[in-house]
Design a protein around this nucleic acid. Structure first.
Lengths: 271, 271
DNA sequence: CCTCATTGTTGAACGCGTTCAGATTTCTCT
DNA sequence: AGAGAAATCTGAACGCGTTCAACAATGAGG
């Protein structure tokens, strides 16, 4: 019966001054989050990610996260509608790590296949670095009902960044000649190919994910060949069929809601 | 403080007599389940499936299942290690429904593409009949950590029955000529193709799963063409690469355990 | 008829993710 | 400064899946 009670010092005397100058109402009424809330939000997400890494996803309870961050459980739920939403931050980190790991290859290699190989390998490597805990996360990604699905609205920016890498793969490839109609869709197709590899990876229980690496080594040349073959008549028919299909299907999700779960109905209001 | 207490009548006077004659210790010491336990087991699973259909998976609580079956919660857990395991019964049913729905096509059609189309369509149709509740189940199938994964040991028989359908598709197809090396693997490849369609379906939120049907209509001819093209030189290289890969990768799961979840560790003992 | 091991069954209890009514702090405007 | 609104924060409580120690029914062997 003493809600509130003693609080931790939010900004102790040693805190970084930064833009503390005046209540920065600067630009026209900023609809963005106040710096105070943002601070708590980041504290919570940082704590959560640390504990996830230390103990694994399931073994990390919301109570533990709250306690470690010196915050109440309810407060965590004020910023994140569910435990899964805390994982989205990991998504961003992982995406960034992939982009960084792919950078060297994109700046040195010029052949299409080598570029594809480097970028895809970077993806697997960065996931593999934290395997056993990253699986828990990409597992959610395979769940269509999860907000973490790569096709969901929430994942839009991460998805576009990821596809962007494959745009670089294609556009930076010297001597790559593909039919005009394919040119545009190729990055997205390659991204789908990556999704397939990731899907394989989360199912792959071989030591050190050896089979996933084998899959990459074997399929990259295969994809390379196929892309090369698209310049011949024989495959053109199949190719146009495939591209037509892609155009027709468009985004898989987003058309009709289907049956919503209780959770989705609840989350829907936070839009 | 009255465990046991009043029980329901297990076999009322009107019960089917059947082989009630003597305690049927018939054949040499039968290690199988006693008929008594089997009766309860089936009561529970039937009740569960009924409630799942009526209310959906998440809305059906273990307490409700137990209450409806006039059994204690603990008793349900005596027969099924988890709520998810109750779903495996649905798997069997669904698999049977698919096989039955595919039968007419397999007995009338003779062209490869028509047979493939019929069987695949039968799969989507039977799922679609209970969409919105079937998604919940096939969702688990996409989860590698779930015992319901189609690659898991528990799902082995269902998987083999499913692949069997595609063996029928191939072997019963008149005039189908494929390279010898492909002949053997084709059914499994087609099954993987079906898995892809199912994966698409659980993500598909378009009305009446229209996009999944479009996917089937568009990709079946495409697969047909590709299979046909394997007789030409141009694709032979790609084909052998693909088949080599399949052989090399073998079963995705089963090699090394990876990091087990608490639940898996618990379930492991029940083997 | 009486053990007694096996099988079946019970319901309270545990820990979890999540919710909620209300308290406190911060911001805004006068 | 002060009042009111908005943002932030609290922890008890809820319902869930699951576990567990204990108890009852069953049936084989004496």
């Amino acid at each position: 019966m003493r809600p509130g009670g003693v609080r931790r010092l939010r900004t102790p005397a040693t805190a970084v001054p930064g833009p503390t100058v005046s209540t920065v109402t600067a630009s026209r009424r900023d609809p963005g989050p106040s710096p105070r809330g943002e601070q708590t939000r980041e504290l919570i997400v940082a704590t959560a990610l640390r504990l996830f890494r230390e103990r694994g996803y399931e073994a990390t309870t919301m109570r533990a996260i709250a306690a470690e961050a010196q915050v109440s459980v309810g407060n965590a739920y004020y910023y994140f509608p569910s435990k899964q939403h805390l994982v989205q931050a990991y998504y961003g980190q992982s995406q960034g790590a992939h982009a960084a790991a792919a950078r060297p290859c994109l700046e040195t290699e010029s052949a299409f296949q080598a570029r594809l190989h480097g970028v895809l390998l970077a993806r697997v490597d960065t996931m593999q670095d934290e395997k056993g805990f990253a699986v828990d996360f990409f597992r959610f990604a395979a769940d269509p009902q999860s907000p973490l699905s790569p096709f969901s609205k929430e994942s839009a920016t991460a998805r576009e960044m990821s596809i962007g890498l494959y745009e670089e793969v294609v556009h930076g490839a010297k001597g790559l000649k593909v039919p005009a109609e394919l040119q545009e869709s190729l990055p997205e197709l390659l991204w789908l190919y990556q999704m397939g590899v990731v899907l394989f990876w989360i199912h792959d229980t071989s030591p050190a994910s050896a089979k996933t690496y084998a899959l990459v080594e074997r399929t990259v040349p295969l994809v390379g060949k196929l892309v090369h073959l698209t310049r011949y008549r024989l495959l053109r028919g199949v190719l146009s069929d495939l591209l037509d299909l892609l155009r027709e299907l468009g985004p898989i999700q987003g058309s009709a809601p289907g049956r919503l779960t209780d959770r989705e109905r609840r989350s829907a209001r936070s839009e």
